[in-house]
């Protein structure tokens, strides 16, 4: 059962927030909805959750149009913390479970299991506002997962998390995805999540500009870079390679874009001949570089509109 977003359009007055957005999220694949601030990610998530009714287009799940009833089996984690500050942690998870249709007993059982899994078992009776930021984030996740949703939609879940929390959260999400759930999360920190998600949908100014499997997209960019850590020098040896272009040059690190068919080994040999090479490697373009490439292409067209 896949989640299909079909031709979604939405405007706020004269401003177009979503312009014919279509893509599919497959079960079992951790999918990132990426793009800069203001790209339309939150608007799209609100449309997905039925909080906002789009001007055109539809959301389909398992081939059927999604109505309010179907969404009770979904889980949503909003961008900022959506928790009741004065409510005890356990009770909070039970409450959200019951809102999603669980019985009191079932919701309590699952809430206990989930808080145990997320390391919050001891904090069941504590007021939510007495928990640390990281704990609240995990509690928020628990409220979104308590009813074991088939579809999980998370708005900027990694925002403001330390690296350890990012690793824990992504592990939890990956596990749900492996179990065959649909997991879609948004982020504006493209490079932070490039190793976390398997598929991406990149949006900019309300349109999908890039989508696909992350590794394929990066490898298929036809844009390999050679990274060299070299001793000080004027890099005069590069003159022998007219197709090679310097991408960046920081202290002793040199990043070079190899043109089509350029041989990285030949360039490496030339560098070693000119001086010591302490480290080297072949890099694929980062997601932000891919984004800048596609966004840059669109900018002149946007300006003419």
């Amino acid at each position: 059962m896949s989640l299909e977003i079909l031709g979604i359009r939405h405007s706020f007055g004269a401003r177009t927030a979503l312009d014919d957005v279509s893509f599919t999220v497959l079960p079992g694949v951790l999918t990132g909805l990426l793009g800069p601030n203001g790209a339309g990610k939150t608007t799209l998530m609100r449309v997905l959750l039925g909080v906002l009714v789009p001007d055109a287009g539809e959301i389909r799940y398992g081939g059927r149009q999604v109505g309010t009833g179907a969404r009770t089996t979904w889980g949503y984690m909003p961008q900022e913390r959506g928790l009741y500050p004065a409510m005890p942690a356990g009770e909070q998870v039970v409450h959200f479970g019951r809102l999603h249709g669980l019985s009191a007993a079932e919701a309590t059982r699952r809430a206990r299991d989930l808080l145990e899994e997320l390391g919050l078992g001891e904090r069941w009776a504590d007021r939510t506002d007495k928990l640390s930021g990281g704990m609240q984030q995990r509690l928020q996740l628990a409220t979104a997962l308590v009813h074991d949703p088939e579809v999980m939609v998370l708005d900027e879940p990694f925002n403001g998390l330390d690296p350890l929390a990012v690793a824990e959260l992504s592990e939890t999400l990956r596990r749900r995805a492996r179990e065959g759930r649909i997991v879609l999360f948004s982020s504006h920190q493209l490079d932070l999540v490039q190793d976390l998600c398997e598929e991406i949908v990149m949006v900019d100014r309300g349109r999908v500009v890039l989508e696909g499997v992350v590794s394929t997209l990066r490898a298929g960019a036809g844009d390999r870079r050679l990274r060299l850590t070299v001793g000080p020098g004027d890099h005069a040896w590069l003159a022998a390679f007219p197709d090679v272009e310097i991408v960046s040059e920081h202290v002793d690190e040199l990043r070079l874009r190899l043109g089509d068919g350029g041989d990285p080994l030949a360039v490496l040999d030339a560098a070693r001949a000119a001086g010591p090479v302490h480290d080297f490697g072949l890099d694929l373009p980062t997601l932000s570089e891919l984004f800048l490439a596609v966004a840059g292409e669109r900018t002149p067209a946007e300006a003419r509109r």
């Binding site: 309010t68 959506g82 409220t143």
Partner: peptide
Amino acid sequence: AMEKSTRISEVLLAVLR
């Protein structure tokens, strides 16, 4: 205002009218 400012309302609106 508490539900609105904490974005709880967004979670609620996904399941409630």
